[in-house]
Computed example of a mutant assay.
Amino acid sequence: MKKYGVLFFALLLCFILTACGNSSSNANSKEQEKNTTPAENKSGNSNNTAQEEGSKKKLHKVGDSLHDPNTGTVTLNAIKDISNKKLIIGDLKVNFLNAKVITITNLSDAYKAELIENFGGNPKEFTYAQILYKTENTGNDEISWSGFHTAVTGDGQQMDLDFNLSFGNPNPASIDMMSNSKIDNNMVWVPVKKDEKSVRLKADNVLKRDNSKKDFIVYGQEIKIDL
């Protein structure tokens, strides 16, 4: 009889410990859910807010200005529709979209350091023409192209545009295009004066992957862009 009593007591003790363990586990699970869920919601709301704010901060018309903590105060000086401009180099067709003249003042320390690294001096502001374009390979061969790497301003000043690569602009340092393909949202910056009226861009050569073709290389051309 004592043996059955001891066995019953042992089973009862195990049941009590198991129940306590489940209660503790449920409590911990609820506590973790309580701690993580608000953080995830907060993060999601923060991203949504940032996207909403980003969508509002665009330069649509002359005189528009915004503050970018990474660069400074950004102001639109001029904007021009240049969709009538096209450049054809062999199988490559470049369709231009628009050109904006933009000035950045109240430069952030990091952006000023980047300007000094690329252009020297001690800049107080930076004005540039932002030229948007898209490319199309109209042929049946794969081609490569390296964008616009030289410009001449209205007063005849020639400059190298390779700084676009370090600024992260999608003006291709080297790009391969498959046959009958398109690439949108290309962009090149050209440092200019605020009242600049035009710039001349020199496109790089277009090469075919098959170098046995007679038109393996087509030399780059120049185009004038009104600002």
Rank of each mutant, 00 (worst) to 15 (best):
A113L: 10
K124C: 03
G120Y: 03
N122W: 00
G121E: 04
L92H: 03
N106L: 03
L115F: 07
S108Q: 07
L107F: 06
S108M: 06
T105F: 02
A129T: 01
A110C: 05
K93L: 08
N122M: 08
N118R: 10
K124E: 14
F96Q: 07
K124T: 15
A113F: 06
K112G: 04
E125C: 01
I131T: 01
N122R: 08
E125P: 04
V101L: 10
F96N: 07
V101P: 08
N118E: 12
N122Q: 13
E117G: 12
E117L: 12
I102E: 03
F96C: 07
D109F: 04
V101F: 03
A110H: 09
L107D: 06
F96R: 03
I131K: 00
S108P: 12
A99L: 09
K93P: 02
A99T: 14
A129H: 01
K124V: 11
P123I: 03
I102Q: 05
L107Y: 04
A110K: 13
L107P: 12
V94P: 01
Y111F: 15
L97S: 15
K124Y: 01
I116W: 05
G121D: 05
I102Y: 03
K93D: 10
D109K: 11
N106R: 10
D91M: 01
T127C: 00
A129N: 01
Q130C: 04
I104E: 12
N122T: 15
A99H: 06
K93I: 05
K112F: 02
L115T: 10
A110T: 14
V101C: 09
A129R: 00
I104C: 04
D91F: 01
L92G: 03
F119K: 09
Y128N: 05
V101A: 10
P123Q: 01
Y111C: 07
K100W: 01
T105E: 10
Y128D: 00
F119A: 07
V101E: 07
K100N: 11
L92W: 02
E114N: 14
G121Q: 05
E117T: 14
L107R: 05
Q130L: 08
I131H: 00
G121I: 02
E125M: 04
T103E: 13
D91I: 02
I104H: 10
E117W: 08
Y111A: 13
E117I: 08
E125Y: 02
F126Y: 12
A99G: 14
F96A: 09
A113D: 14
V94W: 01
L115V: 09
G121N: 08
K124R: 09
A113C: 09
S108G: 08
I104S: 08
P123M: 03
P123A: 00
I104T: 15
K112L: 04
T105D: 09
N98S: 13
L107T: 13
L92N: 05
N98G: 10
T103K: 14
N106D: 15
A99Q: 11
T105N: 09
N122D: 15
N118D: 11
L107E: 11
